[in-house]
């Protein structure tokens, strides 16, 4: 190797090294700040009790309403998104296999939907809600968040299905499968690890999003019992506490942020583990 190549190599190596590690460092720094600010206020009471009167002025209680509310909402939205998204992704890859252009048009639209800011979904959900005469409620929140995460779920699953070699579909057809059988018994199973990842990705996005639930889910100090009651969510809980003039309440906002971050981290790690576990049947 000549001198120039050695220098070129060194510069490139250094740049990629710095780029890769700075991303990791920024993430770590973020985690440290959040944990550092929040850990002091974190307690069993915060995590496991509902806000008592005067909680937002420094009174007792916790954010259980928001934790459980967020789970209700994201679970509901994820279930709804799976009902729409799973058949959609399979449809794109099985029924539309002959129509490459249609496939790509649909993918383009889904990508566009993925890119729309969640506040727009919030505004849209709000308009729909008013049109049907609904109140800000668990149901309205679920529908809005489902709208937000369905494109994510479809595209994430679709990206996995797309990589499945067409020969596997051919093998399935040659054994006498219909299209539906190929979709459900072969493609879905082959892409199952990817499906789990897509599911958790969508769930994580749903549980962390504030803007889409701002107008549609409302906020409450209780845990909703029916679908038409308002529901509290962690992002909004953080938002309300963080805008308080009282220092102790702002601290609790960071405690809530720690809870949310831990939930998201658990989701990411399980996504990895599960997808590993389920990919044992897969052709690589």
């Amino acid at each position: 190797m000549n001198r120039r190549k050695i220098i070129e190599e060194w510069i490139f190596k250094t740049i990629s090294f710095l780029a890769a590690y700075s991303v990791v460092l920024i993430l770590l720094y973020l985690l440290i700040v959040v944990f550092n600010k929040g850990i002091g206020a974190l307690s069993w009471e915060i995590v496991f009790s509902l806000p008592k009167g005067g909680y937002y002025f420094g009174g007792g209680g916790g954010i259980l309403n928001a934790i459980v509310g967020s789970f209700y909402l994201s679970l509901g939205a994820t279930v709804l998104a799976v009902f729409i998204g799973l058949p959609a992704a399979l449809f794109i890859n099985v029924q539309l296999i002959r129509l490459k252009r249609t496939q790509n048009t649909i993918r383009f639209f889904l990508d566009a939907l993925w890119g729309i800011p969640s506040i727009v979904y919030g505004a849209f959900g709000f308009a729909v809600m008013l049109f049907f005469g609904l109140n800000a409620s668990l149901l309205a929140g679920i529908i809005t968040v489902a709208l937000l995460i369905t494109p994510i779920l479809v595209r994430a699953f679709d990206e996995v299905l797309k990589t499945i070699p067409v020969e596997l579909q051919e093998a399935s057809y040659s054994l006498g499968s219909t299209r539906t059988e190929t979709a459900l018994k072969v493609l879905f199973k082959q892409g199952f690890a990817g499906f789990i990842t897509a599911l958790l990705l969508a769930f994580g996005r749903g549980i962390g999003d504030a803007a889409s639930v701002l107008f549609t889910a409302g906020f409450t100090d209780n845990i909703p019992v029916t679908l038409d009651e308002p529901v509290a969510t962690l992002p909004l809980s953080i938002f309300f506490q963080l805008s308080s003039p009282i220092e102790a309440v702002r601290q609790r906002a960071y405690a809530a942020a720690v809870v949310l971050t831990v939930i998201i981290l658990i989701i990411s790690v399980s996504a990895r583990l599960l997808s590993k576990r389920y990919s044992k049947n897969i052709i690589k």
Partner: peptide, 15 residues
């Protein structure tokens, strides 16, 4: 199609 068995260049076992 069931009247014909197919073997491809590379095996593609079902998942």
């Amino acid at each position: 199609r069931q009247r014909m068995g197919l073997l491809s260049q590379r095996p593609f076992p079902l998942p």
